[in-house]
């Protein structure tokens, strides 16, 4: 392999029309994901939406109807006459915000615990592994349901409830990477040269963990969004003044026979986001997989 590496010339694929089409199609999910983020961040600045209630004359209007103030409700309205498009837009903000916070929080905790466990091994590793075992004994979202349910509803509690199991993926990834990295020559040389442990981790281990972690972060982001929707569907998410897709889906269940769009549209918005995040993650995984 090394001798081949010496005469290695990069193979540049010939750009054909088909390859260009593929590149464009491949970029679509990333663009859509970006649109969600932009819509979540800036959308509420342009679209007025009041969660307190709309016009009662506008109750349960089907998608595309004209409301009493003359505007068009693209996605229809709900049982209180509130515009569904506004709800989807504000819901995107909630989802993206909570997903980001959960991934940041659990990513930091996971990387810290995982790197420490993989690099130090011994007791640290044992304790970390047992804690993970215990947390994994709780089925999926159960622990989040219990935590979000018994504490008073707030953003912090939702983020904590979702992070309690979310960090495990990050910890496992960085643990296994730190374990192999510590046996690599550059780490060994640094150790022999007397470089301090903290510096070795910062300079010679963490940079290699970063790429794959970013790829994992997208997967965990999608998971966090789905879990947040599930919590708010059960009525255990953010305080009811804020808008969330799960909450809208739950509220539409009562009116399923007469106004299917209340439940259907936020769910589609959610699924499309999760799919696009998944594709983005696949691309990142392939990218960082090749580099290693």
């Amino acid at each position: 392999m090394t001798t081949m590496g010496l005469v290695h010339t990069p193979v540049v694929p010939v750009r054909t029309g088909r390859a260009t089409v593929r590149r464009i199609v491949g970029a679509i999910p990333v663009v859509i994901f970006g649109l969600y983020v932009v819509a979540g961040v800036f959308g509420p600045l342009f679209v007025d939406y009041s969660p307190v209630g709309g016009e009662l004359d506008d109750r349960l209007l089907s998608p595309g109807s004209v409301t009493s103030d003359g505007s068009t409700a693209v996605f229809g309205t709900d049982a209180l006459g509130r515009d569904l498009f506004g709800q989807v837009l504000y819901g995107a903000r909630t989802s993206v915000l909570i997903g980001t916070l959960v991934v940041l929080f659990s990513g930091l905790v996971g990387i810290a615990v995982g790197t420490a466990a993989g690099y130090l091994r011994g007791k640290t590793d044992l304790v970390a592994s047992r804690v993970i075992d215990v947390l994994l004994a709780f089925p999926g979202i159960l622990l989040a349901i219990v935590i979000a349910g018994v504490f008073d509803r707030s953003l912090a509690i939702v983020v904590i409830a979702l992070s309690v199991t979310n960090w495990i993926g990050f910890a496992r990834l960085s643990r296994s990477m730190a374990m192999t990295l510590r046996e690599r020559d550059w780490v060994k040389s640094a150790t022999v040269m007397g470089v301090r442990r903290r510096r070795i981790i910062a300079r010679h281990i963490l940079p290699f963990i970063a790429g794959p972690t970013l790829a994992l972060a997208t997967v965990e982001f999608a998971g966090a969004i789905l879990a947040e929707a599930a919590l708010s569907f059960l009525g255990l998410g953010l305080p009811s003044a804020s808008v969330s897709w799960g909450q809208t889906i739950a509220s539409g269940k009562e009116y399923l026979a007469s106004a299917w769009w209340i439940s259907a549209i936020p769910g589609i918005a959610l699924a499309v986001l999760v799919i696009c995040v998944g594709f983005t993650g696949d691309r990142l995984t392939r990218h960082f997989g090749r580099k290693q």
């Binding site: 929707a229 599930a230 569907f233 889906i249 026979a257 439940s263 769910g267 699924a271 999760v274 799919i275």
Partner: peptide, 22 residues
Amino acid sequence: TLVMQAIPPFWSGIMLILLMAL
């Protein structure tokens, strides 16, 4: 399978109710 993994069960459940029951 990608789509099946992305749709949350509480939503697919409601959609199944809409289709099969209602």
